[in-house]
């Protein structure tokens, strides 16, 4: 699913709201600092120390703002795969009854491996240098289900450019369903602290056209000149 698109939309709106609130509050604050200096004022601008109608109205307004933000949060979370992966997969063009492409990703101290059910292809690496990063190959245009687990401690599978993250636990499998509408290669990182070489645990996810993906599954390597 399009995590980046949802993130940009929701985060973008929230940033505008936040900027508005910040400017309003700081504006009132700075205004008070200038206008209400003791030197400029002989007596208090107003003496009241409470005003129930205004305070209650403001509380109701805050409740409305909270309701809007909760709706924004929950409705967008439902657009992603939370709790209902197959229904979302069908929205993205998967025919009913067809399974998404599964990739079994395993995190370990301190790198990643990926296996492909029904194929002997195995991706791994040492992550010690950028050249040793594993490249997890996925097909372009079809829903992909990463099933994430760990061999040792808790790690997290994060692709910053695609705005998606899910933790990888030992003795537990988390699934992450997404589509890659275009071919390309993205940097992934481990974002849950996992020990001495946590900082090195980078990997790539590479989306290739379906025919190249089939070749990859059969031969264990991408054909020469594969789309990057």
């Amino acid at each position: 699913m399009d995590y980046r698109g949802v993130f940009d939309q929701v985060f973008g709106l929230q940033v505008w709201i936040a900027v508005g609130v910040f400017v309003l509050v700081t504006g009132l604050l700075l205004g008070a600092l200038v206008v209400n200096r003791a030197r400029r004022r002989d007596k208090l601008p107003f003496a009241a120390s409470q005003n129930n109608p205004i305070e209650i109205t403001f509380a109701v307004f805050l409740g409305g703002a909270a309701a809007f933000l909760v709706w924004l949060s929950l409705s967008n979370n439902h657009k992603l795969d939370y709790g209902d992966t197959l229904a979302v997969a069908q929205q993205t063009g998967l025919a009913p009854g067809q399974q998404p492409v599964r990739v079994d990703v395993t995190a370990f101290q301190w790198c990643w491996s990926a296996a492909y059910p029904g194929s002997s292809t195995l991706v791994s690496g040492s992550c010690a240098t950028p050249a040793d990063r594993p490249v997890i190959v996925v097909p372009q245009g079809r829903p992909v289900e990463f099933s994430l687990t760990s061999r040792d401690v808790v790690h997290a599978f994060w692709i910053p450019d695609l705005a998606v993250k899910r933790d990888a636990y030992p003795d537990h499998v988390n699934t992450l369903l997404m589509t890659f509408p275009e071919t390309g290669q993205w940097l992934g990182r481990c974002s849950e602290f996992c020990g001495t070489y946590h900082m090195d645990m980078d990997f790539y996810v590479r989306a290739v056209p379906p025919d190249q993906y089939q070749a990859f599954l059969q031969t264990g390597a991408l054909p020469a000149g594969a789309a990057a």
Binding site: F7, V10, Q14, A18, F22, N77, A156, K165, R166
Partner: peptide
């Protein structure tokens, strides 16, 4: 007042799961 507000406003962002999936642990 304004400095804590920055913490509070970003707090609402990360209380939103679709935003948190990107920014948590970053």
């Amino acid at each position: 007042v304004p400095q804590f507000l920055i913490g509070g406003l970003t707090g609402i962002m990360i209380a939103t799961p679709v935003v948190d999936y990107q920014v948590t642990d970053s």
